[in-house]
């Protein structure tokens, strides 16, 4: 199974150049059955990453571009009356795929957003009173643009919480950028990629991830981190138990990818920012005060620094 993990990593890294950490995070997120929010500027490879992941994991995949006039029915599907058969026929939306790429999710109206996000949580949709289960496995990779907020509907905290991780790719380094400039990653190239694993294998891996040991000490460490975020002095939105659970699952996936059957604090630290930062960040609009310690160091790092690894509840 570990060889499969390596194969996946190799393939994704061969397309998304120079971002091994982010690639590993996104795969860990999928192994932990989490949805991913990729936040970055246009042209940084968000869509590429999503596409490569879908291909590599052998998942059925559909991309839908979110716009302000996109309706919930476009996402989840709609029943249309067929005059020939004299009955309603279900036209499934983009969501009936194993991997859904929701591009620029913050441009859609709140109604459409919430339709998607509800489906993400429930893993099923109701159309005209009939409940339809979504395929398994089911992932949503959403992207959003941090700048150019005019005409967007920022995701509320409750919906941000549905994404296990938020990942930013960031600019590539010099070598990677040279490589990107020289090579052509056209759609045809992506279409040529082979799936490394089957959906069944993926499910088996997810099961394996779930079996990774988390000792008392690790649970205490995670809880301590959450408690620090609840401390008013850190100026963060408090982390919920759901966040703690996401952190644990992500850390388990990370440990699994490092070929370990138990979680160590390094795993938690590695996924902490991706899992927790978007749940903790305060709305920065109209926030012109001097940058606090947290803003300089990074809020996630500030919180990590406050917890003693060996003795988590000894806060000071």
């Amino acid at each position: 199974m570990q060889s499969l993990v390596r194969a996946i990593l190799n393939q994704v890294n061969s397309v998304v150049i120079g971002k091994p950490q982010e690639v590993k995070l996104s795969i860990a997120c999928l192994l932990a059955k989490g949805h991913i929010l990729i936040e970055d500027l246009p042209g940084m490879g968000k869509t590429t990453l999503a596409q490569v992941l879908a291909k590599t994991l052998g998942l059925s995949y559909q991309r839908s571009q979110f716009t302000s006039d996109l309706l919930p029915a476009d996402v989840i599907g709609v029943s249309i009356f067929n005059p020939d058969l004299k009955q309603f026929e279900l036209h499934k939306g983009a969501i009936f795929n194993q991997l859904v790429l929701a591009d620029e999710i913050n441009r859609a109206s709140p109604k459409t957003q919430s339709a998607l996000l509800e489906a993400m949580e429930e893993r099923q949709v109701s159309i005209d009173g009939t409940t339809h289960a979504l395929p398994k496995p089911f992932f949503v990779i959403a992207t959003q643009n941090p700048l150019f907020h005019s005409g967007t509907y920022p995701l509320p905290e409750s919906q941000l919480d549905r994404f296990m991780m938020r990942i930013s790719l960031g600019f590539p380094n010099l070598e990677a950028e040279k490589h990107i400039l020289l090579n052509d990653f056209s759609t045809t190239f992506l279409a040529d990629l082979n799936a490394c694993i089957s959906a069944e294998q993926l499910e088996a891996m997810q099961l394996e991830v779930n079996r990774v040991d988390a000792s008392e000490a690790i649970l205490e460490y995670i809880i301590a981190l959450c408690q620090v975020s609840r401390d008013a002095e850190t100026q963060a939105k408090p982390l919920s138990p759901r966040a703690g659970k996401a952190l644990l699952n992500a850390a388990k996936a990370w440990a699994f990818m490092d070929q370990r059957h138990y979680v160590i604090p390094e795993d938690v630290q590695a996924v902490f920012e991706a899992v927790c930062l978007h749940r903790m960040e305060l709305d920065s609009s109209g926030h012109y005060s001097q940058p606090s310690e947290g803003e300089k160091l990074g809020l996630a790092q500030v919180i990590l620094n406050q917890v003693d690894v060996l003795n988590p509840f000894d806060v000071h």
Partner: peptide
């Protein structure tokens, strides 16, 4: 060792 640094790291 800084308290927040993990063991293996």
């Amino acid at each position: 060792k800084n308290k927040s640094v993990a063991v293996i790291a």
